[in-house]
């Protein structure tokens, strides 16, 4: 059984998390298969929250499924779809189910997804959500009202950072606010340029927070070029694109797995950061192969 995520973080071991994307619809067979496949191989499984503003199954019940399967869920929470009441009641609800790992996110804007006419909420932001969680832990909701009864919830609070953001300075300012607001762990946006990432880590090491590098599996040279052109905060260096392009026909995915594995191995062996968060978007079944390529399986 997966060790509790918080324990893993505090143990000082190289922490590994992966991601489960709830489907748009009620057929959860594939998702359950991925949960089964990954739950014992990673320290935590993030459950994405209407990822890319596309309506899907909500996060909490999926976290529950992971828990029932013996895994360790990490509840992603964006500020896009819920106001402060809904966010807090969801947090309390998560806690009573024993779901205590929470990743605070702002959330993509509504118009990038499949409900372009929906009302965007953004009542809180990722920093204020962290502060709100801290408040609940101290027995107060974000309006200052006392929680009733015995006991207080406790959470393991996370946030994200985009080390390749341009410009980087405002991003780092916010990163520091997230730590001030109580973030205990940070999962980064996908990184590919390890030299850049090392520079980021030299800066980030001054803070008391665990940093997990975001690893997004490359499936083709085209995908890398597409991300460079279209996904803010992602930069795939040319040598990696060339390496992907050099793969024989039909072997690009294997090459992507090899690259991801190699990056993870370097991050771990050189003690660059505290762990990795693997996003194998649509290829969750390949995470064990990535771990094997990293010598971690």
């Amino acid at each position: 059984m997966a060790k509790a995520f918080k324990e893993a973080l505090e143990s000082g071991k190289f922490v590994i998390t992966a991601e489960v994307g709830p489907p748009k619809g009620v057929d959860i067979e594939e998702m359950k298969h991925h949960i089964e496949l990954l739950k014992d191989k990673v320290d935590g499984l993030n459950v994405t929250d209407n990822q890319s503003s596309v309506m899907r199954i909500s996060t909490l019940p999926v976290c529950r499924l992971i828990q029932e399967a013996g895994g360790e869920p990490i509840l992603q929470m964006t500020c896009r779809d819920k106001n402060r009441l809904a966010l807090q009641s969801e947090l309390l609800g998560a806690y009573i189910l024993g779901i205590t790992n929470v990743l605070s996110l702002t959330g993509d804007y509504v118009t990038v997804g499949d409900h372009v006419d929906a009302k965007p909420v953004f009542d809180l932001d990722s920093v204020l959500l962290l502060e709100t969680i801290k408040g609940l832990e101290e027995g107060k909701d974000c309006a200052g009202n006392e929680l009733t009864g015995e006991g207080r919830p406790t959470f393991c609070k996370g946030a994200i950072v985009t080390p390749e953001a341009n410009p980087i300075e405002p991003q780092l300012l916010k990163f520091e606010k997230k730590i001030k607001a109580g973030a205990e762990f940070i999962q980064t946006q996908a990184i590919y340029d390890l030299d850049n990432f090392k520079k980021f880590m030299e800066y980030a090491r001054q803070f008391d927070v665990k940093i997990m590098a975001g690893i997004v599996l490359l499936v083709s040279a085209g995908m890398a070029k597409y991300m460079n052109a279209n996904v803010p905060g992602i930069f795939v260096p040319k040598d990696l694109i060339d390496e992907m392009a050099s793969a024989e026909k039909g072997k690009a995915l294997a090459k992507g797995i090899e690259i991801a594995g190699r990056m993870i191995k370097t991050l771990k062996d050189e003690n660059i950061c505290d762990g990795v968060h693997i996003m194998a978007i649509g290829k969750e079944g390949k995470v064990p192969d990535i771990l094997a390529a990293a010598g971690l399986a």
């Binding site: 932001d125 204020l128 953001a165 405002p170 916010k174």
Partner: peptide, 9 residues
């Protein structure tokens, strides 16, 4: 947003 940029910049 009141506390700095999102990751989308």
């Amino acid at each position: 947003l009141l506390n700095g940029p999102c990751g989308g910049t």
